[in-house]
Computed example of a mutant assay.
Amino acid sequence: MTLLTFRFAPSPNGELHLGHAYSALLNQKLARATGGRLLLRIEDIDTTRCTPEFEAGIFRDLRWLGLGWEEPVRRQSEHFADYQAVLDRLIREELVYPAFMSRGEIRAFIADREKRGRDWPRDPDGVPLYPAVDKALPMRERQRRIAENAHFAWRLDVNAAMARVGKNLAWMEFSDEMLSATHAVDARPQDWGDVIVARREIPTSYHLAVVVDDALQGVSHVVRGQDLYSATGVQRLLQEILGLPQPSYFHHRLVLGPDGRKLSKSFADTGLAALREAGASPADVRRLIGI
C-alpha cells in the first residue's frame, strides 16, 4: 500500500508567520491522521532574496512548533540540473519561447494598446498578460539576441501547450480539512497567459520547480493556501505536458491580519520568532490559528 505524502514548502526569504504555522501544522495533522509521510522542502530558487539566515529561522520555528519531517530536506537550489533537464525538453518540443521585453517595454506596449481603446487582459492577480510578440521572432533573430547576452525569460506558450494536451484540464480538490470528499475543478491555465517557466540565469520558476519536485518526491496531496488556488491550473498544464503524476489538492483558508488582509513576511507582529520572544508557546500559536 502506497503511503500518502504531504509536504510543507516554505521559501527562506523572510520569517515565518502565523499563516505558515497553520499550513505546516495542518499538513502534519493530515499526515498523522492518514498514517502518511510529511516532507519539508526549502523553495530557494530566488538566490538573491533567500538567505541561510532565513532558512535557519525556518528550522528553528518549525522545531519549536513541534513539527517533524522526513530527512533529507530537499533544497531547490541544489537541484537546478533537474529543472534544466525539464526545461531543455520544453525547448526541444517548442512549448516555450525566449521573451525579451523588459518591464518598461511591456508597460509601454500595453499603454499604447489601451490608448487605442483596447482593454488589455489581466491574470487572476490583476497583472496584465504578457504581450507575446516574441513568438513571431524568427529563430535566427532569437539565437542572435541570446548570443549577444540579451536579457530574457523562457515563457510557456500556453496555446501550444493546450493544443498538445488536446482536452480540458481539471484537478481534484478536497472540500474540507478532513479530506473527506473531492470535486473536480476546471483548470484554466490560459487565464495566466504565457507564464515564465525559467530565466536566463536560473533554469526554473516557481511553477516548473514545484511540479518537478512534487513528482520526484512522490507527493500525493498538496495542501496549501487559498492564494495559490488559481495558479494550480498552470501547474496542472505542466504536469500534463510533461507526463507527471497529478496530486490531489486542498487549498486551505488563509490566516488574516488585523486589517483583514493576507499575512505577509513583513508583518512582524505575527512572525513566529517575535511571538516566541514575546513569551507565546506552541499551544498559544495553535489556539491563535484554530488547530
Rank of each mutant, 00 (worst) to 15 (best):
L238S: 07
L208D: 00
R188H: 13
A163H: 06
M162I: 14
H251W: 08
D82N: 01
R7P: 00
P72Y: 07
F59C: 05
S230T: 14
L25W: 01
E94L: 09
D176G: 08
D284M: 10
R75H: 14
Q226W: 03
G35C: 10
L244V: 14
D125L: 12
E177T: 11
T5V: 12
N168F: 07
A136I: 13
E114Q: 13
F59V: 07
T51N: 01
R261S: 14
R287S: 11
R63K: 14
V127C: 07
L87A: 04
S11G: 01
F152P: 00
A268V: 13
A170P: 00
V211W: 06
T48E: 12
F80T: 02
L38G: 02
L30C: 02
F80G: 03
I241C: 04
E177G: 15
R32G: 06
R155N: 08
S266H: 14
A170G: 15
D125H: 08
R224Y: 05
E78G: 05
E173I: 13
E70K: 02
D186S: 15
L228P: 06
Q28W: 07
S266W: 10
A280P: 03
M1I: 06
S11D: 01
A21P: 01
I146H: 10
R89E: 13
V158N: 05
R164T: 13
V234D: 01
E15K: 03
V285M: 02
A181F: 01
I291D: 00
V285G: 04
F8Y: 08
G104K: 15
E173W: 08
R144Y: 09
L90A: 02
H221A: 11
E93S: 12
D134W: 08
E177H: 12
V210A: 14
D157G: 04
W69T: 09
L18S: 02
A198P: 03
E94C: 09
P138N: 03
G218W: 00
A150S: 11
R236L: 06
E173P: 03
L156P: 03
I110L: 09
V285S: 04
F80S: 01
N168A: 14
G57Q: 06
V222L: 05
L18C: 03
V185C: 09
P121E: 12
L237E: 05
Y206M: 11
L3S: 10
R200T: 11
D269C: 02
A31R: 00
A81D: 13
I289K: 01
E53H: 08
N159P: 02
K167E: 15
L256K: 09
T5W: 00
I291Q: 12
R118N: 09
A85Q: 12
S248H: 04
V185W: 04
R103M: 12
A81W: 04
D157I: 04
A278K: 15
I146V: 14
D119G: 10
R199H: 10
V211L: 09
K135F: 06
E141C: 01
L242N: 03
L275T: 10
A209V: 08
H221L: 04
Q84C: 05
